[in-house]
């Protein structure tokens, strides 16, 4: 564990908690893409099945349980509890165009053709594009609540910190995982446009307006 990975995990945790609290406190999921949240729940489910097979550390297990729990709680709030506030008309990204190619790629490009490894690879590829429905929804509505932009900022920051963590681990431990690194680079690049807007227009505006 290095400081980049730890702050990355904490940034990820912050994003997940920010979103969950935002929906719970405002009792509304307006502007939130339920599809992205379903994809994240799928990412955590397919990646953390090793919870059942191997114990790495208390930290590892605790964080995985929290991530999975929050992901499903968020999906529940969006599609059940605060269903009336779900903006389905703007959450129209065709997720099958993400899940199917990612599923196929996981079978073609992986480290080991075992079920757990295929599922882990699937989750890595899926996570890199899981935010697209959310970014697409914001581009359609042309705006995002400030709290949602903070959620996206921490979510994007987490994988950027992981990229630094992988540079650190390669340099000091000779460890590197090409699949995770390539997917992580793609994932972070998808946020660049948003990062630019967050930094340049974030201050002093109640709504972040993304040019459609």
């Amino acid at each position: 564990m290095n400081i980049f990975r730890l702050t990355g995990d904490l940034s990820h945790l912050a994003a997940i908690i920010i979103l969950l609290l935002k929906i719970w406190k405002t009792r509304s999921c307006a502007g939130i893409s339920g599809k992205s949240q379903i994809l994240f729940a799928l990412v955590f489910t397919s990646r953390y099945l090793d919870l059942l097979t191997s114990f790495i550390s208390l930290y590892n297990t605790t964080m995985k349980v929290i991530y999975i729990g929050c992901a499903y709680a968020t999906v529940y709030l969006i599609y059940a509890k605060f269903k009336a506030t779900y903006d389905g008309n703007h959450d129209t990204f065709r997720v099958e165009f993400l899940v199917v190619p990612v599923g196929g790629l996981a079978f073609l490009v992986n480290h080991d053709f075992s079920p757990l490894e295929i599922l882990w690879t699937f989750s890595i590829y899926l996570e890199s594009v899981a935010i697209l429905p959310q970014l697409f929804m914001i581009s359609k509505t042309g705006e995002a609540e400030t709290i949602t932009t903070h959620y996206l900022f921490f979510l994007g920051l987490y994988r950027a910190l992981y990229l630094i963590n992988w540079i650190w681990r390669f340099y000091f431990e000779g460890f590197f995982d090409m699949i995770a690194i390539v997917a992580g680079v793609v994932q972070t690049i998808l946020y660049c446009d948003f990062f630019y807007l967050y930094v340049t227009k974030g201050e002093g505006r109640s709504q972040l307006s993304i040019p459609t």
């Binding site: 995990d9 991530y67 490894e117 992981y162 995982d177």
Partner: peptide, 10 residues
Amino acid sequence: RTGDCTKDEL
């Protein structure tokens, strides 16, 4: 990773 499936990262 070279086969050592130590998925120690989240």
